[in-house]
């Protein structure tokens, strides 16, 4: 199950104290998920003992964030068998490498987003992904064509 801002919000102090610089705890939850804020930015969580249990839970559910790339992508290598569907369907690959990855071959460009190395999917250049940067779009084409759910995104 992908993590939602609501999952995070439920464990925050919900006081809208604004100490983190956000107007509400909900917007802080959103920014946490997007990795624009850190959990440490919520000072009450760490300073007040009554939040101890919540803090522990928050740390737990936010753990996958550390593994995720800047685009929220997580690759589970155990589930991947290197079929390469994700590489071939990627719209960026199709545009930049029409004769290589776009036509089913291994990428022929020097900076592909994905590549299969030693039989497993490896992220090479996350910055080229359509999910990266300010004008990003929540593209999920690679995930949709992975039959073993080896690819997931934090935001779902």
């Amino acid at each position: 199950m992908p993590l939602t801002p609501m999952d995070i919000y439920k464990l925050l102090p919900k006081t809208n104290c604004k100490k983190c610089g956000e107007q509400t705890c909900m917007s802080f939850a959103f920014k946490l998920l997007n990795r624009e804020k850190k959990l440490e930015d919520c000072r009450p969580l760490f300073e007040e003992k009554k939040y101890e249990v919540q803090l522990k839970k928050l740390k737990e559910i936010l753990k996958p964030l550390e593994k995720a790339t800047e685009t929220g992508l997580i690759v589970n290598s155990d589930k991947c068998n290197g079929c390469g569907n994700c590489i071939v369907v990627c719209p960026v690959h199709v545009e930049k490498d029409p004769q290589g990855a776009g036509s089913g071959r291994g990428p022929t460009i020097s900076d592909p987003i994905y590549r299969i190395e030693n039989g497993k999917l490896v992220i090479k250049n996350m910055h080229a992904c359509r999910r990266y940067g300010k004008s990003r779009i929540l593209c999920v084409v690679c995930r949709e064509n992975c039959p073993t759910d080896a690819i997931s995104f934090l935001e779902g």
Binding site: C80, N81, G82, C83, G84, R105, G106, R115, I116, E117, N118, G119, K120
Partner: peptide, 19 residues
């Protein structure tokens, strides 16, 4: 036909091919 060897890594082969 597009399997490459680079820096001790096998590129583009699926898991079955890699093994």
């Amino acid at each position: 036909d597009d399997i490459e060897l680079e820096d001790g890594k096998i590129l583009n082969a699926c898991e079955r091919g890699y093994k």
